[in-house]
Structure formats: C-alpha cells, structure tokens
Nucleic acid binder design. Sequence first.
DNA 1: CAATAGAGCGCT
DNA 2: AAAGCGCTCTATTG
Length: 631
Amino acid sequence: MHPPQLVLTRDDLHEVVDYFSARDEFAFDVETSGRDRGVAAVNNVTWMSLATHGAATVIPLGHPNGYELLRKASWRKNKATGERENLPAQFSDPPTQLRPSQVFEALRPLFFSNRTKIAHNATFDLLSIAKYYGGYPPPPYGDTIVAAWLLNENRPLGLKPLTKARYGLDYDHENVGKCVEAHPFGTVANYAWLDAKSTWLLWRHMRPQIDADGLAPIWGLEMDVLDCLLHTQAPGTPVDIAALNSLRDDLRRELVGREAGVYRAAGKVFNLGSTPQKQALLYGPPPEGQGLQPRRFTKTGAPSTDADALGFHKGNPLVDEILGYQELATILHTYVEGYLGDNEGRPSQVFDGRIYPSFAQYGTVTGRFSCRSPNVQNWPRPDTVWGKRIRDLVEPSPGSRLLVADYAQIELRILAHFAGPGRLWQGFWDGMDAHVATAAAVFGVPPEEVTKAMRQVAKGLAFAIIYGAGPGKLADMAGISVAKARGFMRTHEREFPEVYRYKDEILRTVRGRRPQPYLHTLLKRRRRLPDLLSPVAALRSRAERQVVNSHIQGTNADMTKLAMVRFNKTRLPGMQLLLTVHDELAVLCPTEIAEEGAKVLHEAMAGEDMQLLGVPVLTEVKICERWSEAK
DNA sequence: CAATAGAGCGCT
DNA sequence: AAAGCGCTCTATTG
C-alpha cells in the first residue's frame, strides 16, 4: 500500500522504508537551516523528502515551528542605541518529530545500496546527509540539474523554473527554501514534498531524453564526475588561519596608507569604492577634477575608471595612487575579509580551519566548472606577491605535500587537433613553444631569433583565434598599432591556412544543424547556439565567435573532467583532489608517497589513454610544501 | 527594508 | 564588435 505522505512516527518511517526498498531508484531532497544552511559540510538537515514510483513523502527532523503563525516577524528601533532590533515571527508549538539519528539510521538501507539516488544538484544533498553517516552514499546517482543542463545549457536550471516550464506547476511564491525556519510547519511540509516529487517527475522525463538525444556517454562521464566531486568537496580545504589573520593585518595597515595617499592626491576625502565619484575626480574639470581625457568607456557610455582606462594616464599622481589602492583593496576585500567574515553580518567561510568551496559541474555553458563559496578558481596568480600569500593559505598537514599539475597550452593543442596537419600541428610535434613557432612563421625569422615582443604578438594572435578578437584587441594586447595588428592577422592567415579552414568548416557544420544550430565537443557534449541564425548581426557575430571558443573550451573541459574521473579511480590512499581550475588539478598527498602520487596524477591527466588529440598532450606535476613553490 | 544592476577585478 | 566564470562595492529601484 501507499506509505504516509508525512512521517512523524517510527511506524510511519518503517512503512516508508518498506515501500522505497522495493524500488530501484528514488529522488530525495533536503531542507537545511541555520546561518550556514548553504554549506553542506556543516549545515543542519531539518527536512528530508523522498519520491519514487507512485509515492512521495516528507520527513521533518526538527522543524522549530508549528502550523499556526501567531505573530509576524517585525522590527523596531531601540530608543537608547538607535539600532534596529529584529523580532522573529512566533508560531504555535511544533508537532513531535523524529530525531535525525533515528531517521538517517532507518534510511541507511536505501542510501547505502545500489539504488539510484536522484536529487536536483545532488552534490549538495548527498554531502548534506553525508555528515550523519560519516561518509557519502555510493553510486549510482542521478542529478536532474545536470540532466537539464546537458539537454539545454541555455536555460534557467533551478528546480522551480524547470518544473514550471515542464508541468506548469508553480508552487513556491514565498521562497520557502531560502529560510525554512521562517515558515509554519505545514507550509514547509508541503514545499519539501513538492520538491522531491517534482525532482522525481523531472527525472522520469529527462533521463530517457538523455538517451534519445545521444547524450548517454557524456551523461555517464558527468555522473562519474559527480562521484569525484563528492570526494573532493567532502573534506574541504585546510587553511592556515594564523597566516590568514596576519595577511589581514598586513593588508589593512598597508591599505590605510594608500587610502591617505589617494586623498592627498585628490585634495579631498571621498568614497574610494564609488565609481561616479572617481569619474568626477578624474575626468571632471579642474580645480575639483583632474580634467583627464577619457580613453575608455563603459557599456553604458560612462567614462571608465578601470585599470585599463587609467593605464593611459600613468604618471598622474591621483591615477597612480588609485591604481595602487585598488590592487590591495581587491585582495583584502575578496580573498581575506571575504573568507574571515565580519561583524556586520558577513559570515565566516572558514569552518574549523577549512574552507568548503563548492564546484558546479553544470556551472557554465561550455562544460567547464564554476566554483563558489568561496571561488577558488580566481585566486591571484602564484607568480605575484599577493597571489603567493593567498595560495600559501592552503596548508597541507605536516605529513603531506601539494601536487599541482596543469596541461601545457591545452587550448592551442586542441585548436591544432581540430585544424589538422599544418604548421601549428607540426610545431607541437617538434616540441616547440607554440607562441615562438607562431612568431617565427609570422615574422619570417628562425625560432631562435624570436624576441619577447614578437612572442607577445604571437600570443595575442592565439587569443584572437580562440576568442575571436579583432585587430583592435590584438593591438591593445600586444602594444602595437591597429594597422600593424591587422597586418599580422593577414600574415597569420596566410601561414596557418588550416586554422582558418577549420573555423569556416565548423561554422558551416554547426550553422546547418537542426532544429537549432549546435556543436559537439570531443566527447560529444553539446553546445546550442541559436543566435547563429539571429537576424541581428551583432548577436550572430557573437555566436560565431562562441562556436570556435566553445568547441575548444568545451573540449578542454571534457578532457579535464575525464582526467579527474581517471584520477578518482586510481588515486592512492590518502590522496585528495582539492580543486580544479579548468586545465589544472591540485591534490593533497601524503609525503611518503608523493613521488608515486605524482605519477598517478600525471598518468590520469596525460597517460596513454588521454592522448586523445592529434598532437601530444603534456602536463607537468610539481610537488610542493606550499603553493608558492609552484611558481 | 530587500533585491537588482552596473562597474570593476580576480582567474583560465 | 574578446570566450567562460564569481565576488565586492555602490547606486538605484521596488
């Protein structure tokens, strides 16, 4: 018979487990509470909901509110201090609920089995419950957000938008999931039940669609990636708190001085974070303003105050002071105070000496990962002073080393692969630096006579192809005139005809696909580009650039994801993947097996089975105590 | 009050 | 006419 839709007693729970035990796949969803509800490693799970063939149920495990709202939330000014005081809403008493330990113990046979565990953004739900088991449930998994993304990367991927689009069901006007403890018991019960139910419905619809669209192989890879992400994210990343605190002190001290320098040069105190105020001071007429000529404009037409625009006015004291200030301010605000939190409501992102970055395998349209809370994919480069100090915050335990590996010029190698035999291809087979080889061809000199400036032009040309940049951008990048840039681009086209044949060919193929234009990456990931047929020229051009870029960037993502999965299957005990930055992997490894571990990592990234391109795929693994050693 | 947009900046 | 991201701050809007 059907199990109860709301579980409040042990008997209810047993009926549910009995029913779900007879099924080989089920969807589930968690609701979490508290300030850190979004951090799977530390949050509290206060609701579980389950759905499968013919049934759905919701299990509260400590919701604080009853069914009745007795008084709405409000606030008032404290007369003495003038500060705002928030008065929380009041509810009737909650019903008696099962304890988390009881519930998770009873559900163990469901989760720790070969049943397919399905959720919408499954890493979050699996890691949220993993705490209660001391480990995460094993595969197989299903993830409706990943399925939805593979089926169409150009749409909102939230559970609600998808459910509404597919079934017309629009059930969350109050944003209950954002803070379940602000809502009465019945509202949350209803909401959580519907989350599990709609996840199940979406699964039933989308999983067959994956096969029908020929996406089964890339789906298989992504589910292996999901497994790998659990291993990566569950333990978090160890951080040196003492170093983080002293970095904060150093930056604050330094920044106070630079702030004063800016005010001195400006002749007044102003808000350094305010773009309009900076615009007035820099470009406004004297004596208040500096009267500088704007050289770059924002997309809304305002004179830009970004580093690029200010670069034209180096030597102006105010400009120089602002540039110096801005650099440190970004580091302090984003990478230091952003992690430590503050007393104004910004919570710390460091828990027990660890950060828990969250990687989204569905986070980009091209197949790459995105990363948040915190984003460790945009840490300042390790060849800068502050980049070293940020990256050195990662603190391997005393008996561990850090293995850092990245693919060498992977995007250009992928371009060479797609373009086929020619100068670029041959350059890689000859083991040459790709930019030197390009410069030699474009400037018509032997490789040993290629200068720094010539190599810089070649580098710009590579970007121009991969991103679709025009002569203006190349000129900016290489520090040459637009006329010269145009000339180099023509020469490049003559010397590397196969590259341009490839661009034409892929564009033609993709444009011709129906019902809408899409491309295939190396591992048959799809990227749909409907704008390729747009009547608007600007949109069409942009889509044409995206074709080439997504083909290359998406193939890079395929390879990195495959390497991660290979690593996850071959890693030695004690090794932990820490992070992935598009063409780079960083791994923690016990010191006594560091050499062996480096080989495993190397093999996963660039072994025989990873030679998927027509040109060699190379990677170098560095073994370090701290990241700054990795250059 | 909260939510959103714009500018800016960090990364590959 | 430069591809893909996330975070912080300010200013504006609801």
